[in-house]
Write a protein that binds this DNA or RNA. Structure first.
Length: 561
RNA sequence: UGGGGCGUAGCCAAGUGGUAAGGCAUCGGGCUUUGAUCCCGUGAUCGCAGGUUCGAACCCUGCCGCCCCAGCCA
């Protein structure tokens, strides 16, 4: 009973460990908290991106691991920039990622009345005052990073006067920007957030949820921590740039009669190479038409990744592998891509499709004859079974898979070389037909009828295997190939970030030929030897449209055929 | 020159005084009806310089580098 654990007693596969989880464990062990409550607090002013996914996975993940709950809370304190449409989209995204907030849906705006009362409480206690300084004046008075600020002339206003002014601000008596409510803390603090930060500003705009009830709105600093307290959040997890705000967060909690004592912990946000992860920049890309929308498959948004064909499991796995720390780095895009491949390799059915077709005619195959061959749906998963693939005398193969005078390394078609048509026959190229400009228009081949299925009874080996589609049975489709949205790994590092946009991020192949089984594909599939492809949201029978989620790894020698 | 953080191999990241986990990438090799998958192997003395200690990535001191903060954005 009093047995201690063996030092070599290997725990099961390590649940994620990081400084935040360590802290939570400690808080639970010490009895500090019986159960933990976290929250994911998006501002509804744009769509979620993969950086948010990190926060989502952390907050919901930790709640789940420790038997707590995670609230979804909209930080809707700025009606000037927020919109209802985003509220819906954000919920869809979080759900799609695989998380469930149950009944715990909140809005900071639900607390407006309470926040107002607490602001009055601060004024009554001499801890806040109404200031008439303009934004410009306030900036001047605030000082600089190295010089202390000066007190506003209104800092000494009586509580009674501030209370009156504050009420009139609420009533809509003053213009936007005419007055603000400020906390009275320390104009000389080295931490600029403590130099009498603004708690309320006049914004005579209607709010998606409270309509015209309010003419003043609390700032993030005043709304966030207090909302945490109201919801009983135990661990308020946010990104590093809020570290400077923690003293203010604590000051407010300490000076207000809040019902709980939440604590804020900060972790580093996700930075990904060859893309941008800020809502400001992402909205700009959308607004200026550099992409087709928030759900453009090139966007690092949750909705974009989804349309691209990235499974939510892959995103969660990716985030999990990165870990939670306080050091900010730049994660290689290839890391994400690799994680996506890993998941899709297990689940995506294999199919064949030719994206840059040239015709291949098998001269000794009977005219007009057709047969069906069996193709493995997934070599890594026996249970995926097989499918029938129609075969005939005329096929489409990839232009890339033929080369004149190919070097020995070239394992594909060239005159005189025998290769295997996947799941079909051995075929030997005998002649090539070209147009006036020298472009290959057709390949002539002979096949070995004995090699049906892809193996020769004489045990003869073949150097390569290529994919194909029967001309008579092919379905046509448009396929979109994507590359990094930005050519530079760190957009904006060497020049204006928009100049780093990759002009080749989208390549449209409008006449591709696919095996007939793809006519009604409804999930991500692997086009053998090419990559993973997802039917686009606009794909329709007769007008198939696929997005390349990610290519397959390619270890072929550098110089392509 | 103020305040707050960070600094372990190309990238992410364990490690918290006892002699550098793991993942990805790279490069070799094996297997292979996808040049895919899979399998095996492959690299660091821990930003730098001092100090404490029998012993330091982990403790102390001093440097250096990078990130964030001067919105009535979050």
């Amino acid at each position: 009973m009093t047995d201690t654990q063996n030092p070599d007693d290997n725990e099961t596969d390590a649940a994620p460990r990081d400084f935040i989880r360590d802290r939570i464990s400690a808080d639970i062990e010490s009895g500090q908290h019986a159960a933990i409550v976290t929250r994911f607090p998006p501002e509804p002013n744009g769509h979620l991106h993969i950086g948010h996914a990190k926060s989502i996975c952390l907050n919901f993940g930790v709640a789940d691991e420790f038997g707590g709950t995670c609230n979804l809370r909209f930080d809707d304190t700025n009606p000037a920039r927020e919109d209802e449409s985003y509220i819906r989209a954000i919920q869809d995204d979080v759900r799609w990622l695989g998380f469930d907030w149950g009944d715990n849906l909140f809005y900071a705006s639900d607390n407006f009345e309470q926040l107002y009362a607490w602001a009055q409480h601060l004024i009554e206690n001499g801890l806040a005052y109404v200031d008439d300084l303009s934004a410009d004046e306030m900036r001047e008075y605030r000082g600089t990073l190295t010089e202390p600020g000066r007190p506003s002339p209104h800092r000494g206003r009586t509580a009674a006067e501030s209370l009156d002014l504050f009420a009139r601000m609420r009533a809509g008596e003053f213009e936007d920007g005419a007055k603000v409510l400020r906390a009275k803390i320390d104009m000389a603090s080295g931490n600029i957030n403590l130099r009498d930060p603004v708690l309320y500003r006049i914004l005579r705009a209607d709010h998606p949820r409270t309509g015209d009830a309010w003419r003043i709105y609390p700032t993030y600093d005043f709304a966030h921590g207090q909302s945490d307290a109201i919801e009983g959040i135990t661990h308020s997890l946010c990104t590093l740039e809020f570290e400077d705000h923690r003293p203010l967060y604590d000051w407010l909690i300490d000076n207000l009669p809040v019902p709980a004592r939440p604590r804020q912990y900060e972790f580093s946000r996700l930075n990904l190479g060859h893309t941008v992860l800020s809502k400001r920049r992402l909205s700009q890309l959308v607004e200026e038409g550099h992409v087709t929308g928030w759900d453009d498959p090139r966007m690092p948004t949750v909705t974009g990744l989804r349309r691209r064909g990235v499974p939510p499991e892959a995103i969660r796995d990716f985030i999990g592998r990165l870990g939670i720390t306080k050091s900010d780095g730049l994660v290689e895009m290839s890391y994400l891509e690799n994680t996506i491949r890993e998941h899709l390799n297990q689940t995506a059915p294999r199919r064949m499709g030719v994206l840059d077709p040239i015709k291949l005619v098998i001269e000794n195959y009977p005219e007009g004859e057709t047969e069906e061959l069996d193709g493995l749906n997934n070599p890594t998963d026996e249970s995926a079974g097989t499918r029938k693939i129609p075969f005939g005398r005329e096929l489409y193969v990839e232009r890339d898979d033929y080369m004149d005078d190919a070097p020995n390394k070239f394992r594909r078609l060239t005159i005189g070389r025998e290769v295997r048509l996947r799941f079909a026959y051995f075929v030997t190229c005998t002649d090539v037909i070209k147009d006036a400009e020298g472009n290959v228009t057709e390949l002539r081949c002979t096949y070995d009828p004995e090699s049906r299925g892809g193996d020769s009874p004489d045990g003869r080996k073949v150097r390569g295997t290529i994919h194909w589609v029967s001309v008579a049975h092919a379905v046509t489709a448009e396929v979109r190939l994507y590359d990094h949205l930005f050519a530079a790994e760190e957009p904006g590092k060497e020049r204006d970030w928009l100049e780093d946009l990759n002009p080749a991020s989208l390549e449209v192949r409008d006449t591709c030929f696919l095996e007939p089984a793809l006519a009604d594909a409804d999930g991500v599939v692997q086009f053998e030897r090419l990559g993973y492809f997802a039917p686009d949201t606009n794909s329709a029978p007769g007008a198939l449209l696929f997005n390349r989620t990610v290519s397959l790894r390619d270890s072929r020698p550098k110089a392509k055929g």
